[in-house]
Write a protein that binds this DNA or RNA. Sequence first.
DNA 1: TTAAGTGTACTATGTTAAACAATACACTTA
DNA 2: TAAGTGTATTGTTTAACATAGTACACTTAA
Lengths: 127, 127
Amino acid sequence: MFKIDPRSSTPIYLQIVEKVKENILKGILELEEKMPSVRELAKMMTINPNTIQKAYAELERQKVIVKIRGKGTFVSADYNGKKDEERMKALKDLFKKGIVEARYLGLKKEEVINMIENILEELKGDK
Amino acid sequence: MFKIDPRSSTPIYLQIVEKVKENILKGILELEEKMPSVRELAKMMTINPNTIQKAYAELERQKVIVKIRGKGTFVSADYNGKKDEERMKALKDLFKKGIVEARYLGLKKEEVINMIENILEELKGDK
DNA sequence: TTAAGTGTACTATGTTAAACAATACACTTA
DNA sequence: TAAGTGTATTGTTTAACATAGTACACTTAA
């Protein structure tokens, strides 16, 4: 279902969170679509159900998915466009980290912008 | 010396690594300049010397600084522009994560590009 | 009504990284 | 020689992560 890097320092459950959000933007996961159940996804990925649950909990906290007890988990119909201050600050920090690294890798401004635009394209279609 | 967020999930030593690289790019730390000693910086930041040492070790591994036993630690004269494959991949993943988050925050393509350009400007001068 | 499948909650265990603490050693310089 | 460098080692504590196992309330379909 989702490719996980077990050697990564970012926890499995957060890797899942990222992949889900990415796939929704790409259209691979449709809005309102039913997600695999906790146990099902755990079996598919050979990962502990508790870890999946933690990922789903975080995704619900971010309003990316909606969980309905007894029925299942669904991709949230609308992602809210609130420009949360804290998250904006965190986003800027993340980009800054990336740009510092880019400079140390010898990338020029245009190359950075190019990379960003490529990723923006990737996330457009793909359905 | 460097502002650290103790509540952040990224380890202190990595926060220091980022800040040092950022300050070098900004010109706040000059090339060839002598860095504070491990013990000195530890005292300034009220942080364990081992943590500083870990940060310096990582910075040296990245060839950002050079350490000379008995003399001190210095900002490396040249940052190498090798486009290391692994680091490039990691960089792209980092940016992707940021862009996914940006989309969920309701930012449009132009707004993302703007944010990137602002950060690039920040890192230009500042000396 | 029942059985199977949902999300949820809880306790427990092992692993790992991070941070701290304390000490000692080799080297350089004043 | 003394003070200041980086370096190395050992140990302890804490917290996050992932796993394991069990149990409960709810929904749906047979």
